Amino acid sequence: MSLQNLTSEFVGCRVVVSGGTKGAGQATVKRFIAGGATVVTAARGPVDASAGAHVIATDLSTPDGAARLADAALKRMGGVDVLVHVVGGSSSPGGGFAALTEDHWRAELDLNLMSAVRLDRALLPQMIERRGGAVIHVSSIQRTLPLPESTIAYAAAKAALTTYSKAVSKELGPKGVRVNVVSPGWIYTEASQALVSRIAATTGGDLEAAKDSILQALGGIPIGRPAQPEEVAELIAFLASSRASAIHGAEYVIDGGTVPTV
């Protein structure tokens, strides 16, 4: 596809991106807008418009927050053609399974699983009615490579999201709606940069040594670096586009080869 076609492939397309003001979500918003789409996204607090998108201040980890984004998107755009669930993350403490309370588990599941379930429930019916649309759920390689020290609940929630996505794809494929999963490894976002800086400050080493320590914790990345947010956004845009019209119910891993098994 030519560069000219890439800048017009989403003209007339109405897109919702959850968590579109930072990291891979923000890169995804920019990619859709660069392709001509109209985009609505969300943030937990008031922020400036993200790359030309309309931003709704709402907490997607709550039922009311998900409903607020869905209602605003439908009112503003009249419908949604592409739904991308990027929002996610972990705030649970380290210390293994015993350190996780009921509240920690509930928070991880609400943010990483139920935010997608609730938005799907609100926005998929209008796709089904039109017999057209694309949904991309952003999971994580931690669903297969959980880190027991610190991300048990996050990894479990992402595993549930991936399984949920497969089940939904079986239901929606015959109804004209495509559902796929993107599972990133380490993405070098602002949060990752801050983590690298904290490690360097704590250990007294430089930034490169801090990056290497993260690579070692992951068991290495064969290409030698984390993915950039724009690389993840490009994969998401491809799966949402007509170029991927026969791709459905699939999971695409973008981790530089981190997962060591088939």
Rank of each mutant, 00 (worst) to 15 (best):
S213M: 11
I33H: 10
P146F: 02
K175R: 13
D206T: 11
A70G: 01
M77S: 14
G20L: 10
A116T: 10
A134P: 07
P148K: 06
A157V: 07
I56E: 11
T41F: 15
L161P: 01
E231G: 08
G224E: 07
A73K: 12
A42W: 03
V262P: 09
H248A: 09
D59I: 07
V168H: 09
F238M: 03
E129A: 07
A167G: 15
T28D: 05
E251Q: 13
T41V: 14
A159R: 14
A107F: 00
T38K: 14
L100C: 00
T58M: 05
L83S: 04
F10M: 10
F10H: 13
D64C: 01
A209H: 09
T38M: 06
N112C: 01
R14Y: 08
T41L: 09
R143S: 13
R76D: 13
T203D: 12
V29H: 06
L74V: 04
A250Q: 10
P148G: 03
D64I: 02
R31F: 11
A246Q: 05
L207Y: 11
L218K: 08
A53Y: 09
T151L: 08
A57P: 04
F238H: 13
R31G: 01
E208Y: 05
A72Y: 13
G205D: 12
V182P: 15
H104C: 00
V179F: 15
L109A: 07
D255R: 01
L6C: 09
R225W: 07
R131A: 10
R243W: 06
V182T: 14
A107V: 00
V232E: 12
Y188E: 14
T38W: 05
G257N: 10
T62L: 02
L207K: 14
F10Y: 12
L235A: 10
S150H: 15
A24W: 05
F238P: 09
A42R: 09
G133N: 08
P174V: 06
V259M: 11
A210Q: 04
I223H: 03
A49R: 07
G257T: 06
V17D: 01
A53I: 12
A49K: 11
A24D: 12
H54S: 10
L195I: 02
S18V: 08
Y154P: 03
E231P: 11
I128C: 05
R121S: 00
G205C: 02
H248D: 15
S241D: 02
A57D: 08
D103Y: 03
S91N: 14
G133E: 09
A107P: 01
D71V: 07
D71M: 00
D71T: 12
E230M: 04
K211Q: 10
A167Y: 14
V15K: 14
V262K: 11
V138Q: 11
A157L: 07
R106M: 00
L100S: 00
T189M: 04
Y154F: 11
L218A: 02
P148E: 01
I56M: 03
S165D: 02
R106S: 00
G257V: 12
R68A: 08
L207D: 11
V82G: 02
V80R: 11
D206G: 12
K22I: 00
D59C: 07
